[in-house]
Design a protein around this nucleic acid. Structure first.
Lengths: 206, 206
DNA sequence: CGAGGTAGAGACAGACTGGTCTTACTCGTT
DNA sequence: AACGAGTAAGACCAGTCTGTCTCTACCTCG
């Protein structure tokens, strides 16, 4: 049931490959996939474009990834690491002194992110809505969104808040809603969500 | 710039056509388009399937709609009427006695909607994320989402709230976030959003 | 040297895409 | 009865999609 991307080359292998300076095929494919999938979604990027942009033969592609969907799963795993963990959670933890500050700092990071001209929305939401919750890729996206909620819940527990799972689910509504609003062009979406998030924290204090 | 669907057959014509008992081609096409687009999105439904399901010749289709995108625009207009206006706003107004109650009733309607097994998320959000904000269909979706915000702002003004545009934008974050959470499977998403919505109302009272 | 594995390049298959066009038929109106 | 508008059916086009296949070149290890 859990769509853990265990069946595709892991990031560890990739990074090792890149570290050898060999610039192996898998590493290039994953880099191009990250670039294209995150900016344009899954359906809009074909295998032919992927292999052309990564300078890889088609047979090489299919030797390492049994299907395009397998590559998408690897991309989602990569996205979880680079975006969720490194860009959002770690950065928010760095900006805040207390767990509550760190929670609210998520929306400061969002605010900076929304202003980037290459702002590309959240791949997990995109793919979930693009493929639907029944599709394996939609299921995987749901799993990764749950991981994001897990980070929030962890911070809530560190902050000593009450009913942390409910808190994280409500908090996540604010995160996802502000992302969609930013896609619509509302540049203050992060500030608005942060205000409601502050009220939410107050109502979950013991 | 505004993507008003003036260039496609209006709903009035459609309903007149259906009212004659003639079940004309345009009416059938629009009915099938509503069914398929709302449940499966735009990219997943091809012109061939549309014409087959509506029992219409391809030439007939292209006589009434210059392109598939034109049909999508007509669908969005239809969706605004049938879903935004008739299913959500009117129903919420019916359920509440005061404007504030009517605002909160939006999330009661959402709660019922989320429970439906054929729950299909919000077509405007789906198409916006599917096509991107730069695409004409994404732009049209943004316009229709703004109309939803307009309904909220109108109710906020009736309720005598302060800073109604900011209020509506924050409220809309809750609506969109709860829809995505419901797509993930959180059946309590409407209740969570409603709680935050109540706080938002309190903070906008004069 | 020579074998095996990996690589790039690209032809090819089979299905699908949006869109054009032709043909034949059925109506309603005059 | 004759006309014209609208329609169904479907061939067809050029292009796209994912995925398989062959061929050749290279590189490394024994």
């Amino acid at each position: 049931m859990s769509s853990g991307p265990e069946s595709v080359p892991s990031l560890v292998e990739t990074q090792v490959g890149a570290a050898t300076g060999h610039a192996d095929a898998v590493g290039r494919i994953l880099a191009v996939a990250y670039e294209l999938f995150s900016r344009r979604g899954v359906r809009d990027v074909g295998v032919n474009e992927l292999i052309e942009r990564s300078g890889v033969a088609k047979a090489t592609f299919y030797r390492h990834f049994p299907s395009k969907d397998a590559l998408v799963l690897a991309f989602l795993e990569q996205r979880d690491q680079q975006w969720t963990v490194n860009a959002i959670v770690s950065e928010a933890r760095r900006r805040g002194n207390t767990p509550a500050e760190q929670l609210l700092a998520i929306f400061d990071v969002f605010g900076d992110w929304f202003l980037r001209e290459d702002f590309e929305a959240c791949s997990f939401i995109n793919i979930l809505l693009e493929m639907g919750p029944a599709h394996p890729l939609g299921q995987a996206s749901i799993d990764y969104l749950a991981r994001i909620r897990g980070h929030v819940q962890g911070l809530a527990e560190e902050a000593g808040l009450a009913r942390t799972e409910d808190f994280a689910r409500s908090w996540h509504i604010l995160m996802k809603g502000s992302i969609v609003s930013a896609t619509e062009g509302d540049m203050q979406a992060a500030k608005r969500a942060q205000q409601m998030a502050a009220w939410l924290i107050e109502h979950h204090r013991n």
